[in-house]
Simulated assay, not measured.
Amino acid sequence: MLEHYLSVFCGGNALKQVTTEPRWKETFKVAWPLCLSYTPIGIACGILLHAAGFNSILAGLASVMIFSGGAQFLIAQMLTVNAPILTIILMLFFLELRYALLGSSLSKYLQGENHRFIFTFALSLNDENYAVNYLKFATDKNWSPKDALQVEHWSLLFWSVSNVIGSLIGSALKINLEVVDFALTALFIYMIVMQVRSRLSLIICIFSGALAAFCLIITKSTLGLVASTLIASFTGYAIERYLTKHKPNSGLLNDLGAAGTSGPVVEPLEKKDESDSIL
Rank of each mutant, 00 (worst) to 15 (best):
residue 1 M to I: 06
residue 2 L to I: 13
residue 4 H to L: 07
residue 5 Y to G: 00
residue 8 V to D: 04
residue 10 C to D: 08
residue 10 C to V: 12
residue 11 G to W: 07
residue 12 G to W: 06
residue 16 K to G: 01
residue 19 T to K: 11
residue 20 T to M: 12
residue 21 E to R: 11
residue 25 K to H: 12
residue 26 E to H: 08
residue 26 E to M: 02
residue 29 K to V: 12
residue 29 K to E: 14
residue 30 V to R: 09
residue 32 W to P: 00
residue 36 L to Q: 14
residue 37 S to M: 10
residue 37 S to V: 09
residue 41 I to F: 12
residue 42 G to S: 02
residue 42 G to A: 01
residue 42 G to C: 03
residue 44 A to P: 06
residue 44 A to S: 14
residue 45 C to N: 07
residue 45 C to S: 13
residue 45 C to T: 06
residue 46 G to T: 08
residue 47 I to D: 09
residue 50 H to T: 03
residue 53 G to L: 08
residue 54 F to A: 14
residue 58 L to R: 09
residue 62 A to V: 03
residue 63 S to I: 01
residue 67 F to C: 04
residue 75 I to A: 15
residue 78 M to I: 07
residue 80 T to D: 10
residue 89 I to K: 00
residue 93 F to N: 00
residue 96 E to S: 15
residue 96 E to N: 15
residue 97 L to Y: 06
residue 98 R to L: 03
residue 99 Y to N: 12
residue 100 A to F: 13
residue 101 L to E: 03
residue 102 L to N: 08
residue 106 L to D: 11
residue 106 L to C: 04
residue 110 L to V: 02
residue 115 H to S: 15
residue 118 I to D: 02
residue 120 T to W: 12
residue 120 T to S: 14
residue 120 T to G: 14
residue 121 F to P: 09
residue 121 F to K: 10
residue 127 D to V: 01
residue 128 E to Y: 01
residue 129 N to S: 01
residue 131 A to P: 04
residue 132 V to S: 00
residue 135 L to E: 13
residue 136 K to M: 15
residue 140 D to R: 11
residue 140 D to M: 02
residue 140 D to K: 05
residue 144 S to V: 11
residue 148 A to K: 02
residue 148 A to G: 13
residue 150 Q to N: 10
residue 154 W to A: 03
residue 155 S to A: 12
residue 155 S to I: 04
residue 156 L to Y: 05
residue 157 L to I: 04
residue 157 L to C: 09
residue 157 L to D: 02
residue 158 F to S: 05
residue 159 W to E: 07
residue 160 S to Q: 13
residue 161 V to R: 06
residue 170 G to A: 11
residue 170 G to L: 08
residue 171 S to R: 10
residue 174 K to F: 14
residue 186 A to Y: 02
residue 186 A to L: 08
residue 190 Y to T: 10
residue 190 Y to I: 07
residue 194 M to Q: 12
residue 199 R to A: 03
residue 209 G to H: 04
residue 212 A to E: 08
residue 212 A to Y: 04
residue 214 F to R: 01
residue 219 T to L: 15
residue 219 T to Y: 06
residue 222 T to N: 12
residue 222 T to P: 03
residue 222 T to F: 09
residue 223 L to I: 09
residue 227 A to V: 15
residue 229 T to P: 02
residue 230 L to G: 02
residue 231 I to Y: 00
residue 231 I to K: 00
residue 232 A to I: 02
residue 245 K to W: 04
residue 246 H to Y: 14
residue 246 H to K: 13
residue 248 P to F: 09
residue 253 L to W: 02
residue 254 N to V: 09
residue 255 D to G: 01
residue 258 A to C: 15
residue 259 A to M: 03
residue 261 T to Q: 14
residue 262 S to Y: 11
residue 262 S to M: 14
residue 262 S to P: 01
residue 265 V to R: 00
residue 265 V to A: 04
residue 265 V to P: 01
residue 265 V to H: 01
residue 266 V to G: 01
residue 269 L to D: 14
residue 272 K to W: 10
residue 272 K to H: 06
residue 274 E to F: 02
residue 276 D to Q: 13
